[in-house]
Amino acid sequence: MSDQTVFIDDYVVSISELNKSFGANHVLRGIDLEVQRGEVVCIIGPSGSGKSTLLRCVNMLEKPSSGRIVVLGRELTHIDCDIDEARTKIGMVFQQFNLFPHMTALENVCIAQRKVLKRNSAVAEDIGRSLLQRVGLGEKADAYPGQLSGGQQQRVAIARALAMNPDVMLFDEATSALDPELVGEVLQVMRSLADDGMTMLVVTHEMGFASNVASRVVFMDGGVIVEQGPPSQVISAPREERTRTFLANVLNH
């Protein structure tokens, strides 16, 4: 830890002056965002607006070009930060599920518990089974990812992230790769997580989910946060022209 600054406040995630460039492409342009414990923040916006990059910066899968990211009191952008340790408290769910195809559903949920948290196999397995139960897949513990539908795979991926007892969950377009009829089962699991008080950052195109579940909606465009607020404001009565255009395109097609 040494001289690493520890911030004691209510924010689970605190981002300030965040910039990210890929070569000449300036993707994030000075993002400031704070997320409080128990908040469900939905990030919406057109593709290429930087919302996925922002989310991936929160657990440092993308390295910010500049700016400061503090998660759970740890300054991830500080040179002394143990990023592996910090990530155990930040769950992430990907668009492509990214389950480990050479392991069963249960092994997927147990592997990091054993290798990272050093839980013994029996404990890890108990936790793994109860989490699979929680996402409605208790019967599928021994199935390989290739034998599961997209919706089932994504629910296993959520269980895998929850197995680390994260304090915050990141969802990167978790339902975008799913067939339409499988979207509901995944959203339902996400919703029950929100109901249980999990702090969540959700990049999504599901306006219904954002309207009903989000405590705050953040609209991004061109690498900046254009406007944010409760869904009743941002989705139902947007102030900014860009937000209105985007919503008109999304909702009326």
């Binding site: 899968l61 492509q96 480990f100």
Partner: peptide, 25 residues
């Protein structure tokens, strides 16, 4: 690439993610 990212996001170090997730595949 998502395999490495998923493993890292669970807190595995680079060598561990290589050894348990990427190299076996």
């Amino acid at each position: 690439k998502g395999q490495m990212e998923a493993a890292r996001s669970l807190g595995m170090s680079y060598p561990r993610a290589m050894g348990t997730i990427v190299i076996p595949q």
